[in-house]
Design a binder for these strands. Structure first.
Length: 160
DNA sequence: GCCAACGTTGGC
DNA sequence: GCCAACGTTGGC
């Protein structure tokens, strides 16, 4: 089982929205590296830290779980969608997505500052703390995942 | 709203 | 295949 961090802007789709929807197709990923993670490496049951970006303060607010195999992102063929990609062909889709399901909301919001405070300790090497990192999906080491979980006030049993 | 970082595009 | 121009992300 692998661990991930997925970013989302709460104004667009936050943890509350996921909680309400329970399962959500993670559409709109238009970055090859992030796509490849979904297409090639994510498996059903993998857990992801749900991160709120572009908000004050940014930080980890919950946990989600991979709930489907990858499949073509329908928004790439929708001319009215902001994610429309005219270069993508139905017979050879360029972008894929998969579903995430709600697992838990953190009792304690773990802000980016909180994460940074441990950047040279327990969370050393965590990709989201790297300067200039803009990737919306990043792999997370198990020990980092578990530590952030604890910081957020969750135990392993809360996400199993 | 600014701007640094970084990915993508397209001319050559 | 290089690289300048451009667009986007996301913290501040």
């Amino acid at each position: 089982m692998k661990y991930w961090l997925i970013k989302s802007e709460p104004d667009v789709f936050g943890i509350e929205d996921l909680k309400k929807a329970q399962v959500e197709p993670w559409d709109g990923i238009r970055n090859y590296q992030a796509r490849n993670f979904m297409r090639d490496e994510m498996e059903i049951g993998d857990l992801a830290l749900f991160y709120h970006s572009n908000t004050k303060p940014p930080g980890v607010c919950g946990v989600a779980r991979v709930a489907s195999r990858p499949y073509p992102d329908p928004t790439q063929f929708d001319e009215k969608s902001k994610y429309y990609d005219p270069k993508s062909k139905e017979e050879e889709p360029r972008w894929c997505l998969l579903d995430f399901e709600f697992v838990a909301e953190m009792p304690n919001y773990v802000s980016l500052d909180d994460l940074k405070a441990e950047a040279e300790g327990k969370l050393e090497g965590m990709l989201v703390l790297r300067r200039g990192n803009r990737l919306s999906i990043t792999p997370v080491e198990k020990k980092h995942f578990n530590h952030v979980l604890k910081m957020g006030g969750l135990a392993a049993k809360d996400v199993s």
